[in-house]
Design a protein around this nucleic acid. Sequence first.
DNA 1: GTCTATAGGACGATAGAC
DNA 2: GTCTATCGTCCTATAGAC
Lengths: 199, 199
Amino acid sequence: MARTTGSHSDITGPRIRETASRLFARHGFAAVSMRRIAGEVGVQAGALYNYMPDKQSLLFGLMQGHMQELLQARAKRDVPETVIAQLEDFVRFHIRFHLEKPDAVFISYMELRNLTPENFAVIEGLRRSYEDSLETILRNGATSGELKVPDTKIATLAVIAMLNGVNTWYRDDGRLTLDEIEAIYWDMVRKAVLPNGSA
Amino acid sequence: MARTTGSHSDITGPRIRETASRLFARHGFAAVSMRRIAGEVGVQAGALYNYMPDKQSLLFGLMQGHMQELLQARAKRDVPETVIAQLEDFVRFHIRFHLEKPDAVFISYMELRNLTPENFAVIEGLRRSYEDSLETILRNGATSGELKVPDTKIATLAVIAMLNGVNTWYRDDGRLTLDEIEAIYWDMVRKAVLPNGSA
DNA sequence: GTCTATAGGACGATAGAC
DNA sequence: GTCTATCGTCCTATAGAC
């Protein structure tokens, strides 16, 4: 059964999202035109509107999809028994997941200001629930005395900010393996939240 | 001696820079038009070109000015004797300086991709020399054994990324004072780079 | 130094043919 | 589903009067 001439809905949609993600990450949402996205996909600008009502929806869809993937991947992991092991798992998961999707990560925190207020609230909610999964670990550790953090909320944001930094300098052909990078960051995070003088 | 009617070069220039800095930080360089900057300053768009050759120069000037201020403020500080004290001084200086100029900070790392390659190289050079001032402290500490960092370069970037995170959540009317915030971050940074089991 | 006016082009989004 | 064509708007930057 031959497909209608010129019809490629099954591949054009994903290709639009991939192309837009790459271009938004590289040049910024506001600096990338619908014409340019269409051009790199290989269609005319008007054709994009078969897949989304407007440019804002394209951005929101990319960010929402990324945050949902992040939360789902996180939810799928087995929860280690000890707080320390849970924290190590978070650190390694976070670094690995974020290095696998650098464009989506970049967009999801650089383009927040280009979301409508309604869309912004949705993305912030998803981000907040991811942060909460780390804060819960730190709070449990602080309560049990296994960890010592001056302020649970700030420690959460500090750890995430530190880990996010990897994306700014990592290169596939760099001198360190992914395992080495995870180990280095885990060492720093672990020491930062352990009580003074602990192993 | 009356000034020429309509002439305000002494105040319009700074006002353009302040307004552009605020708008670029809030909405992004590409999303802010020269008309809008002019409108908020209170002049017509064409008048802006008495102060800069083009929009790119405006962005570059803001970023270069910010980085030079940062480096000069850093250079002015007395250097404490011990490595630990030098590190504490860096942490407190960094947090305080960056919280004082949130718009310029935001622009200087969010709008790098909107610089021409030549301008980008200049800003990156300035940023690099700031990072080097921290890396030198960490390397000296590692050599003497006062500190233990798995990788000097990565530790430098990790500490700066962690400290930069403050700007994403700090509010003037928040529950913590600037001194408390500095103390919390200094506690985490100190522990992260000390040898295991040190005070 | 600021104004008005505009050149010359790119923008997001839509209409209608196929 | 994609195309061509276009609407109406906005953009950066410049020219020339005052």
